[in-house]
Design a protein around this nucleic acid. Structure first.
Length: 216
DNA sequence: GACCAGGCACATC
DNA sequence: GATGTGCATGGT
């Protein structure tokens, strides 16, 4: 089996086991973008509380965040942790999008993936995973999102070397799978679900893992 | 009480 | 360049 076949085999096994994940769990592009910041190193359940607070106060949009005082944002997103840092990140991102795209998601959509990615990465507080999450889940670009779980999966299945970089692992997926945003969407979501369910740091190899047949 | 969660920037060596 | 640290709430 080549790498692409192995990746598809893993994908199908995860899909059979967990079913479709229907990511991203957000209703609008702006909610997805905001959620991508809030979920940094944070359990999604805590993020939901923060998003709910923003929504109930009418601040769940780029334009409103740009207008709202940073201390108010920080207070509303408190449940998601790192609230001072994330409030600053949300303000930076929002002011960038207002200044360059008038906060208009349709204008964002007309820009090339490469240019958008480098623009997002230039914003303080947005790293590779957050930028790629926005590109894939808010803008449906065929960009594979790598995260801590992807590393665990790839290393434990000997798909990549231990000290691989983000971009190297990303290339492993994108160069061996069809260029398909729907596939990348579902695959990343399934990897996260696998990680949450089985692939904890403390149990590197879990006997009940759905991939633990001939893939470990 | 320890450990973890859908990261990132920055300091220091 | 690689290694370490602060950020912070809430669930298990």
């Amino acid at each position: 089996m080549n790498i692409g076949q192995r990746l598809l085999k893993i994908y199908k096994r995860l899909l059979d086991y967990f079913g479709t994940q229907n990511w991203w769990p957000g209703e609008t592009e702006e909610e997805i973008i905001i959620g991508a910041i809030l979920t940094q190193n944070t359990n999604w359940r805590n993020v939901e509380k923060a998003i709910s607070n923003l929504k109930n106060n009418g601040v769940l949009s780029i334009r409103e965040i740009d207008k709202t005082d940073i201390s108010t944002i920080a207070e509303l997103i408190k449940p998601s942790g790192y609230f001072n840092q994330k409030a600053k990140k949300l303000k930076k991102l929002s002011s960038f999008l207002m200044e360059h795209y008038d906060g208009d998601m349709d204008k964002l959509k007309s820009v090339s993936t490469e240019r958008l990615r480098s623009e997002l990465l230039s914003i303080n507080g947005i790293g590779a995973e957050t930028a790629d999450s926005i590109l894939l889940y808010a803008l449906e670009r065929p960009v594979f999102v790598v995260d801590a779980y992807s590393f665990r999966l790839a290393i434990r299945h000997n798909l990549i070397w231990e000290d691989a970089t983000y971009e190297e692992l990303q290339e492993l997926f994108t160069q061996n799978l069809p260029r398909d945003s729907s596939l990348y969407n579902e695959y990343h979501a399934l990897i996260v679900q696998l990680g949450k369910s089985f692939c904890k740091r403390k149990n590197p190899i879990c006997s009940s893992c759905p991939l633990n047949f001939d893939l470990h």
